[in-house]
Design a protein around this nucleic acid. Structure first.
Lengths: 188, 188
DNA sequence: AATCTCATGTAATGGGTTACATGATTTT
DNA sequence: AAAATCATGTAACCCATTACATGAGATT
């Protein structure tokens, strides 16, 4: 088995710290709540869960399953796991590197017809608009929960970051389209 | 040798379309002008250049080196290479996936002391401010070149995207700090 | 009965960074 | 003479996705 010095381990600990879960529900949770800034595949999740158990950071909750769980394994974080999680949270996060294929294409825009980049930007704007609507929807949901005394401040912050991010990208693309169009009309 | 179905190939073609270059100058160009949205290592660049030659997308410029080039190989894009580049530019870019460790940590913020996330956010704000200043500097430089009749519209667009992006991230972090602090003072 | 979703897991493959190896030229 | 930079390249390793294999339970 691999050593796994990466981040998957800590994401899983963070999710297990919230509530005991199976590999499958962890995957679904990441897809639903983290996909705009993080992703994990089954190929990472299952081996890493095994690793967590091996390192005493999590245990499989045996017995007392009320309903007949078919084959699933419910993982629970240990005290040691909580400590490891907190230590990791305190460490400075890695400086983020982006890989934005759209921007690479735009940078080579001169080599193509202006229409090509304008179309890519249109698609990009649509995508970002969709994401902005999604972020707004989540913010409303979280705000409702808050009124019911159910606080999710930190989750809200990540959704808010998505809103800021997608809005900035959309606004940039609108300006970029404008700049390219101007130039097309008046190539002085 | 690897097949390399990835993007490296096209980035190199895009850079070679601008001017003939060596692997080394390509690396430096990517570090200087692309690092905020793309990166490549020597371990990718050199094998890919070989591959380009093998596929007739680039050739090594032999002879006529005026100054004694020590061991370096100057690569030049071929007509076939230009066609392949244009075809790639026309294809829709891959939908971008982010991996933002800071946001993962923030999402687990409840498990740590508020001070921990506030400090991470402070660092993040500083980093973004630095990047914003850098983008502004680049924009000024490009604007000067423009006055001299040297157009870099598409390059400017990518720098502008950086400015939008880093500004949005900084503004979000400022609001996030505010929200966490409010909550700390008044934990009703 | 067939199909869909739940559920776990492994193997193959790909893509990328880092470390290492080598040597020339330039700067201090 | 030593150190820094220029310059190319390979090997090891790591991380991650995808494809595949298996099977239970639920739905049509």
């Amino acid at each position: 088995m691999k050593e796994n010095t990466g981040k998957t381990k800590y994401i899983l600990l963070g999710l297990l710290a919230h509530q005991p879960q199976t590999g499958y529900t962890i995957k679904k949770a990441i897809e639903y709540e983290y996909s705009h800034f993080w992703q994990e595949s089954f190929g990472q999740i299952y081996p890493t869960l095994k690793q967590l158990v091996k390192e005493d950071l999590a245990v499989i909750m045996e017995g007392q399953e009320s309903d007949s769980t078919r084959g699933q394994k419910l993982y629970q974080i240990t005290e040691k796991g909580k400590k490891v999680l907190i230590t990791w949270l305190e460490q400075a996060p890695e400086i983020e590197k982006l890989r934005y294929e759209l921007l690479v294409k735009v940078s080579f825009g001169e080599a193509a017809e202006p229409k090509v980049m304008l179309e890519h930007l249109d698609d990009f704007i649509k995508r970002n608009d969709k994401n902005i609507r999604e972020m707004n929807f989540f913010l409303e949901e979280l705000s409702k929960l808050r009124l019911q005394g159910d606080d999710h401040t930190y989750k809200e912050l990540t959704v808010l970051s998505g809103k800021y991010f997608y809005t900035a990208m959309r606004d940039w693309a609108l300006e970029a389209k404008h700049i390219i169009s101007e130039r097309k009309v008046d190539p002085s």
